[in-house]
Amino acid sequence: RLYEREDHKGLMMELSEDCPSIQDRFHLSEIRSLHVLEGCWVLYELPNYRGRQYLLRPQEYRRCQDWGAMDAKAGSLRRV
Rank of each mutant, 00 (worst) to 15 (best):
S33E: 02
G68F: 04
H35T: 15
Y61S: 01
Y61V: 00
E38L: 07
Y49H: 01
M13D: 04
R50Q: 14
M70H: 15
L34M: 15
L15Y: 04
L34R: 00
S21I: 02
L37E: 06
D7N: 15
L28Y: 09
D24V: 07
R5H: 15
S76A: 05
E60S: 14
P47W: 02
R57S: 15
H27A: 13
L55S: 13
Y61M: 00
S16V: 15
K9I: 04
L2W: 02
R62S: 13
N48S: 09
Y3L: 00
C40K: 10
L2Y: 01
E60R: 14
D7H: 10
L11M: 14
Y3I: 04
R62E: 05
H27Q: 14
D66R: 02
L43P: 00
R57C: 10
Q23M: 14
A74V: 15
Q65E: 13
A72N: 13
R1D: 02
G10P: 00
Y61T: 06
K73W: 08
L56I: 06
W67M: 02
Q53F: 07
E30G: 08
R52N: 14
R62H: 15
R1V: 07
E6G: 02
L15R: 02
K73S: 11
I31T: 03
L46K: 13
E14N: 07
M12H: 06
G10R: 01
G10K: 02
L77P: 03
V36I: 14
R32P: 11
D18Q: 01
Y3V: 00
Y61L: 01
L11T: 13
C40I: 09
L37S: 07
H27M: 13
L34G: 04
A72S: 13
I31P: 00
E6N: 07
E14T: 11
G10I: 04
C64S: 08
M13C: 12
G75L: 02
C19T: 06
Q23I: 14
K73A: 13
S29C: 09
E6T: 07
L43D: 01
L37K: 11
L56E: 01
Q23N: 14
S33F: 00
W67A: 01
Y44S: 05
L34T: 02
S76I: 15
L46N: 03
L46A: 15
C40T: 15
S29L: 11
S16A: 14
Y49M: 00
L11N: 15
L46R: 11
L15M: 07
A72C: 12
L15G: 00
L11A: 11
H35F: 08
N48A: 08
L28N: 04
S21C: 12
Y49T: 01
L2P: 00
R63C: 11
V80F: 12
E38V: 09
M13G: 13
Q65D: 07
L34I: 15
D66V: 03
Y49A: 00
G39I: 01
S33R: 01
M12P: 14
F26D: 09
S76L: 02
E45I: 03
M13A: 12
E38S: 14
D66T: 01
I22W: 02
E30T: 10
N48P: 04
R25Q: 10
H35S: 13
R63H: 11
Y54F: 12
P58R: 07
R5P: 03
L46Q: 09
F26S: 04
H35R: 13
G75R: 01
P20G: 07
E17M: 09
E17K: 07
M70T: 13
P20R: 07
D24P: 00
Y61R: 00
L46G: 09
R32D: 01
D18Y: 03
E45S: 11
S33Q: 00
